[in-house]
Amino acid sequence: MPKEVEITEQRELTQYDDPTVYKSIYDVVIAKKQPLDWRRVSGTEFRLLNYAAGESTEIAVGRVGAGGLLANFNRWEREYGTEDVITDISGLKKVMLLEREASMIQLNGEFQKKLGGMPVKYQGWATTGVICDVGGGVLVTVKMMGPEEEVAAQHENFMEFLKNIKINPMQEPSERSKKGLKIEEVKSGY
């Protein structure tokens, strides 16, 4: 087997390459466009969309089914060692996310996160986070965290990215009949 190979074979595009086609139940939230500086990486149990930027910055889109907006913002605050500073949603900055009004916070300071299961502290970190209530007790969160300089550098990308996150609609089969295709019932044993 050669050590260097030239690849010329290309595959025709199929529905596999269309991000709106469901390939797993995690495809409920998609973002077709992303900032060039970001690298999409593996998802996790709680992160539907996960990106890396710079050296150590992470941007994650997640879905939460418990607690309200306040409870989740407070959860993020605890990562900076503060407790329940935010008590009122109405005072927070508003942005549009998923065609709804969402609240945004920005935190900075000494950040604590897990490394190998053990808590580790990082100095001079920042978090920019947005939470949106999509109804049915479900919240969608978009969170960027990393060293202060990197987070500041990516702020514009982050705000642009918020516009690209969409909920992937589940197509109702009845939509098909609207396409005007003729339907022929075929018996088995084709």
């Binding site: 087997m1 050590k3 260097e4 190979v5 030239e6 690849i7 595959r11």
Partner: peptide
């Protein structure tokens, strides 16, 4: 571009460069 199975599975210890 597609790199097929045969050119990947022997790379447990080795490396291959694709152009």
């Amino acid at each position: 571009y597609v790199i097929k199975h045969d050119m990947i599975v022997d790379l447990e210890d080795g490396m291959r460069r694709f152009k």
